[in-house]
Simulated scan of single mutants.
Amino acid sequence: MAELALYQILLANLVVLAGACLQGVVGYGIGTLSAPLLFLISPVLVPGPLTLNATLLTVMMLARNRMAVRVREVRLAIGGGVVGTCLAAATLMAISPRGFELIFGVLILVAVGLSVAGWRPRLSGRSSVLAGMASTFMGTITAVGGPPIAMIYQNERGPLVRANMSAFFLFASLLSLSALAFSGYLGAREWLLFLVTFPGVIAGFLLSAHFVGRIDGERLRGLILGVAGLAGAAALTRGLLSL
């Protein structure tokens, strides 16, 4: 591809493989881990191509965990997600490519900050709406929508977490893709980049089946957030240097 060298395509597949495997085990993570690293490989890999990959992953995960879905909280989170998506679309239409780099870096660091803050809100209707709004706003712009919605599921069972978050992420991804297409961030280039990177998502999802119940997600949390934080800081620096 003219946009990417072969080594960049291979690296991108490895990154989404790791993110998809992580999400298959703990319920979220493809955005938190993969987005900042993909941005450093090439900014064209986010948000559109990664959001397409995340959509494919959530379909597969929902099929695997569909029996554990609890509909009420998902419905309310999706309602908040509609508002967040509209705000994100307006933001994308208003900012320049340099502004995108800056806001991308800032939101990555916000996502990491939310993940390490230690705040444990109770799963309720109100928290579902607010988390859904924040998740889709961040997810549309950066493809990292996991931390806000993950915060309200910190105290829930593994199957419920994977099922409800997969159901939410499916609708959120569809909303985000609509916003990206409307704002000019999802076109033929992004679909082509998705086609050369989705094998990594398939491989990561299949690999995750061997680790469900065997790996404690909390043990990986610090490493994942550290990688995301460093990559987010690098993205922000890159945006500042381009001013």
Rank of each mutant, 00 (worst) to 15 (best):
L52E: 03
L52C: 13
L52Y: 06
A54V: 01
M60V: 13
L62V: 05
L62N: 09
R64H: 14
R64N: 14
N65Q: 11
N65M: 05
R66D: 11
R66F: 11
A68R: 10
A68T: 09
V69G: 05
V69L: 00
V71N: 12
V71I: 14
R72G: 10
E73C: 10
V74E: 07
R75L: 15
I78F: 04
I78H: 11
I78Q: 05
G80H: 02
G80R: 02
V83N: 05
V83F: 04
C86N: 10
A89C: 05
A90C: 13
A90Y: 13
L92F: 04
M93W: 12
M93T: 11
P97W: 00
R98E: 15
E101T: 09
L102I: 15
I103A: 04
F104Q: 15
G105C: 08
V106H: 10
V110A: 08
G113L: 10
L114F: 12
L114N: 01
L114P: 09
A117Q: 06
P121Q: 04
R122C: 10
L123N: 10
L123W: 08
S124K: 01
S124P: 11
G125C: 02
R126V: 12
R126G: 14
R126D: 03
S128K: 01
G132P: 08
A134Y: 02
S135F: 00
F137M: 00
M138E: 04
I141M: 08
I141S: 12
I141C: 06
T142L: 08
T142K: 07
A143T: 13
V144C: 11
G145P: 03
G146K: 11
G146Q: 06
P147C: 04
P147K: 06
P148R: 04
I149H: 08
A150I: 07
M151E: 09
I152L: 00
Y153A: 03
Q154T: 14
Q154I: 03
R157Q: 15
G158Y: 11
V161Q: 09
R162A: 02
R162G: 01
R162I: 00
N164E: 03
M165D: 07
F171W: 15
A172D: 10
S173P: 13
S173C: 14
L174Y: 07
S178T: 14
A179L: 08
A179E: 07
A179R: 03
L180W: 01
F182N: 12
F182E: 12
G184N: 02
G184T: 05
L186I: 02
L186F: 04
G187Q: 03
A188T: 15
R189K: 13
E190P: 06
